[in-house]
Structures are given as C-alpha cells and as structure tokens.
C-alpha cells in the first residue's frame, strides 16, 4: 500500500513571542522542529507499511531549510521525501497551502496510486487544522479527522477511532482516504543507527512551482483569501486582581464567584438532553 504523509517544519512555539516594541513575531534563534502531530502521522504510516507492505512518501512545503526536517523524518524509516519549495508559495494561507500540496500529491498519485494520505491534526504554528480537510476535498478523498486509532485496514477500506467532544466515534471510509492524526494515535519510535546514517546523506527531491502544472493565481499571497491584518500579544497576564480571603473567606469567595459569572468566565447553560458534552 502507498501512504503519503504531509509534514510541516514549524518553529518550536513555546519559544515564539511578540516583540513588544514592533508587534512582530520574534522567531530569531527559535529552533525548528517537525510538527509534533505530523511525527505521529509519519509513525502511523510507517507502522502500517511494515504491516501491510508498501511505501511511505513524505511531502512538505516550505523553505529550503525544511530539508532538515525531511532528513530527520527519513531517519524514522520513510522511503521517499519531497520538498515543495518556491518563492511563489510564500504567504499561502490554508486554502493555498492545501492547493499546493494537492497538486504535488496528484502527481505522486498518478505515478503510484495512493491508499491513505496522513496529515497532522494541526500545525502548532498556524493552528488552523484546515490544511488536511482542504487536501481531502481537492483530491476528492473522504476524510477522517482527529484520528486516535487505526482499528482496521484492508485493500478497500480503513476503520478509524476519532476523538470528538462528546466521546469517541468509530468511522469507516473507503480508500483512498485522508486521515488527520492526534498524538494519542501511537508512541513515537527512536531512529535506528543505520537509518540515521542513511538519512544524514539523503537528499530530498526538490520540486518548484514550474515542475508541476500550478495555476499561479491559486498560490502564495494572490491565492490566499485570508490575510493577517494585525498581530498582537495576548491579553496581559500581569496585573490580575488579588482577592484576600484570609479574614473573610466567605465574603471573598462570594465576591469572586459573582465576578466570574458577571464577566461570562463561567456561564450557565440549560442542561441539554443527552447530558453535557
């Protein structure tokens, strides 16, 4: 079977901050990592390949430096890695990103038919969780989002446990299909030494906008209907209000709870049939 994994190199967001003077992102010196959800997507693809036989192909869109993430990914045992890199891709929103990845996946599909495309649930930088469903729609594949377990797979279908608000859902889709992956899906492996050595010298294939039949109106800034008009730091954490409950605990707590409801921090919802989700 042929598994394709969409893998994004992302900044380690725990270290990204806003420069308070310029209100721009401070990315300098922030380490790049494989998007954590994509690492689990890759792990699942490799496990299924080892069980079913076949091949794992990785596709990533990003700057040339993203090669590093692809080498790292190869060290876990993938078979092929392709980096889509072109200045014309820069500034793409999730609609354009899904378009760019889809055109590449269609070419891969034409060469070697794909059974499952895996993406992460979301990327930890943009956080939209929109790219996976966008690719599924464009490919015309059914999608199973928020996957936490692949229960069954055969040549024609896949059954996945999905995480939803109210509980877990077991859903079955005909192949080819697209699955977005939660971290609970599996435990990551460590790379073996021979795989690490092979990966260190691996050269990912580089595809640019000219290597594929791209419509330039659908990619980059031009192809992106959304635009970021302003960024700013989240509401400050300092200067919170202190409530002294040492002398009159009862009054202090009543006062706090009153505020919490008044400011809609906690809201009352009418109890719904079927219980709370």
């Amino acid at each position: 079977m042929h598994f394709v994994v969409c893998l994004k190199q992302v900044p380690d967001t725990s270290e990204v901050r806003i420069d308070p003077n310029t209100n721009t992102l401070m990315r300098e010196g922030v380490p790049s990592i494989i998007n954590p959800y994509d690492a689990h997507a890759l792990e699942e693809a490799i496990r299924l390949r080892d069980k079913m036989g076949g091949k794992v192909t990785i596709v990533s869109m990003g700057p040339p430096q993203a090669k590093e993430a692809l080498r790292k990914a190869m060290s876990f045992g993938a078979d092929r890695a392709i980096l889509l890199t072109d200045r014309g891709f820069a500034g793409s929103d999730s609609l354009a990103t899904a378009y760019i990845l889809t055109v590449a996946i269609q070419k891969i599909h034409a060469e070697e038919p794909i059974d499952i495309v895996f993406t992460g649930k979301e990327a930890i930088d943009g956080d939209t969780a929109q790219t996976g469903p966008g690719i599924a729609q464009r490919l015309g594949f059914p999608q199973l989002t928020y996957g936490i377990r692949v229960r069954e797979i055969d040549n024609t279908s896949v059954t996945v446990e999905r995480k939803t608000e109210g509980g877990r859902e077991v859903a079955k889709a005909l192949l080819p299909a697209l699955i977005t992956v939660e971290k609970e899906m599996n435990e990551l492996r460590y790379a073996t030494l021979p795989d690490m050595m092979k990966a260190a010298v691996y050269e990912p294939e580089m595809w640019d906008a000219k290597s594929l039949p791209y419509d330039t109106a659908e990619m980059g800034l031009k192809g992106s209907p959304t635009s970021v008009s302003r960024i700013f730091p989240p509401p400050g954490r300092s200067g919170g209000e202190r409530i002294d409950a040492t002398t009159d605990p009862k009054g202090a707590v009543a006062n706090l709870v009153e505020k919490v409801f008044q400011e809609n921090i906690i809201m009352v919802h009418p109890a719904v049939k079927g219980g709370r989700a």
Binding site: L95, T128, G132, G134, Q137, Q143, T145, S224
Partner: peptide
C-alpha cells in the same frame, strides 16, 4: 470551532474557494 465545525468548515470553504479563519 468544535470537532465537527473544524472538520466540515474547511471542506465547505475549499469547495467555495473562499477564506476561513480558524478558532
């Protein structure tokens, strides 16, 4: 922006080729 909203809205936006802001 529930599991369902974040599943179906990107599919709708893609079909309509319009923008979608998440969450």
């Amino acid at each position: 922006a529930t599991a369902i909203g974040r599943d179906v809205f990107p599919a709708v936006a893609t079909r309509l080729r319009t923008g979608l802001t998440a969450d």
